[in-house]
């Protein structure tokens, strides 16, 4: 049978159609992101007044929520980064045997765990401990229990990204150091880790971004606070929970404030992603 067009023309058209299809799919994928940014900007920007940014939520502002999110992220990172990175080192450098496989499986399962489940876990963990008398009961809703929940989410993410980062360092670099009579721990500290520092930083920032946007576990643990930070054993405000509170509030002013807080949250997460990309580029330039 004869075709309408010759082979080359058909192939050219097929190429054009498929290229168009991929572009269309990219546009579809970007549409939600674009519209979120657009909505947050259009609706949130009018809410961003000096008082909104400097007052606590008692006065309708979000300053305490920003402070709370920064504190929560900082404390969580303090707990989760060392644990996560050390776990990653174990998995990559030592976990070649059965135990390593089991740990890896657990880490994988933990990264998949829905965050509300983690919230319930942290809540009941603290609650049980306070029933047993380890903690005073008010600690159930506190910075401490929020950090436990957030760290539970962040540790597996950091562990996995660190493991991947360390695996990218070629065996030849490790062998070179070992063959010089450098002990293994020092090989890891001084040769392997510096070679993948930027990938480690990226993993840490990814973990921070993930934790910074979490809402569900905070509802179960940090609860809310209309005031600024007032102690590790007290509830604390955070941007995501504040968005939720404003959004379910009855007044129009609160709904506007929800958009304003959303915008700040989105910008915060965006700047963290951009920062992590900048770290990667920084390394590329140095090469």
């Amino acid at each position: 049978m004869r075709f309408l067009f010759d082979r080359d023309t058909r192939r050219r058209w097929f190429d054009v159609i498929m290229s168009g299809a991929t572009l269309l799919c990219v546009a579809l994928a970007l549409l939600p992101l674009g519209s979120i940014l657009f909505e947050a900007l259009v609706r949130g920007a009018p809410a961003l007044t000096p008082t909104f940014l400097t007052q606590s939520s008692l006065m309708g502002g979000i300053a305490n929520a920003i402070q709370g999110t920064v504190i929560l992220i900082g404390l969580t990172a303090l707990v989760a980064l060392p644990v996560g990175i050390l776990t990653g080192i174990y998995l990559s450098e030592y976990g070649k045997h059965r135990l390593g496989g089991i740990v890896r499986l657990f880490v994988d399962v933990m990264t998949q765990t829905p965050s509300i489940v983690v919230g319930i876990f942290a809540y009941s963990f603290i609650f049980e401990l306070s029933l047993l008398g380890f903690f005073p009961p008010p600690l159930v809703f506190s910075v401490i229990s929020a950090v436990i929940a957030l760290a539970t989410i962040m540790i597996p993410i950091v562990a996995r990204t660190s493991e991947e980062a360390l695996r990218l360092v070629p065996t030849s670099a490790r062998e070179a150091a070992l063959a010089l009579g450098i002990p293994r721990y020092r090989t890891i500290l001084r040769v392997v880790l510096p070679s993948c520092a930027s990938a480690l930083v990226t993993g840490a920032l990814l973990g921070i971004a993930r934790v910074g946007g979490e809402t569900a576990p905070l509802i179960m643990t940090a609860a809310w606070n209309n005031d600024f930070f007032n102690g590790l054993d007290q509830p604390i405000a955070a941007l995501p929970t504040q968005v939720y509170r404003f959004a379910v509030g009855p007044s129009l002013a609160e709904n506007r404030a929800a958009w304003g807080a959303s915008l700040i949250l989105v910008l915060l997460m965006l700047s963290i992603s951009i920062a992590s990309r900048a770290v990667i580029r920084l390394r590329a330039v140095r090469r």
Binding site: P170, S172, A173, E175, A176, A177, L178, A179, L180, G181, V191, S195
Partner: peptide
């Protein structure tokens, strides 16, 4: 390994 050094097949500077 300090007394018996080694050079590898592929150059592997740090």
């Amino acid at each position: 390994r300090r007394r018996i050094g080694m050079v590898f097949q592929k150059p592997n500077p740090f």
